[in-house]
Amino acid sequence: MPEIDALLGQIVPAVQAAVSAYGVGVLARVEDRVVDQAAGETARLGQRLLDRILRRDTDTAQVGTAVADLVEAAGDPDAEGALRLQIRKVLQGDRSLAAELASMLPAGPVVRAGGERSVAVGRDNQGIISTGDGARNFMASEPRTAPEGHGPRRAHP
């Protein structure tokens, strides 16, 4: 069974996408099993995951409350953290549910970048990733002369 933190890293962003797409209506949509074809794949996955979490036999009111709080404070890291914490509690209390949710997730890596100038790489990166202002990037395979005052100078071959 996957580690809880790794599982949360895939489940929570999908549930957040569903909350973002449907707002507080995500709770009603889960109850009605409505799948909006206009929503993105991640939002639909999040909706299915949330449906399974909320339909378990034990008390899930705290997850519903965390979803409603996230709707009211969209993008608030504290509200996102509260949702993550409530889902973590559910998964820690029900390992079979954790395994079931893991089986619902896509096989490939799920990456998420948040915030200004964030970078996410799903598998391998073969090139430069630069987010700085006025950055000058040079590939080692392409020797160049650095601009005046910007590091050591190398002559062209």
Rank of each mutant, 00 (worst) to 15 (best):
P2N: 07
D5P: 07
L7S: 11
L7F: 06
L8T: 08
L8F: 02
G9Q: 11
Q10C: 10
P13G: 13
V15A: 09
A21I: 03
A21Q: 00
V26F: 02
R29P: 00
V30H: 06
E31Q: 12
V34Y: 15
Q37D: 14
A39K: 00
G40K: 00
G46F: 12
Q47C: 08
L49P: 05
L50D: 03
I53E: 02
R55E: 03
D57G: 13
T58V: 12
T58S: 08
D59F: 04
T60I: 06
A61W: 01
G64W: 02
V67Y: 01
D69E: 12
D69L: 11
L70W: 15
L70A: 04
G75Y: 05
D78H: 06
A82K: 00
L85P: 00
L85H: 10
R88F: 00
L91N: 10
D94K: 08
E100N: 14
M104T: 14
L105G: 09
L105Q: 07
P106L: 01
P109W: 07
A113W: 05
G114Y: 13
E116H: 11
E116W: 13
R117C: 12
S118P: 05
V119F: 00
A120C: 10
A120T: 10
G122Q: 15
R123V: 00
R123E: 09
N125F: 01
Q126I: 14
I129P: 00
I129H: 08
S130F: 07
G134D: 14
G134R: 09
A135F: 07
A135H: 08
A140K: 15
R144G: 04
P147Q: 06
H150S: 13
H150G: 00
G151R: 11
A155H: 09
H156C: 14
P157Q: 10
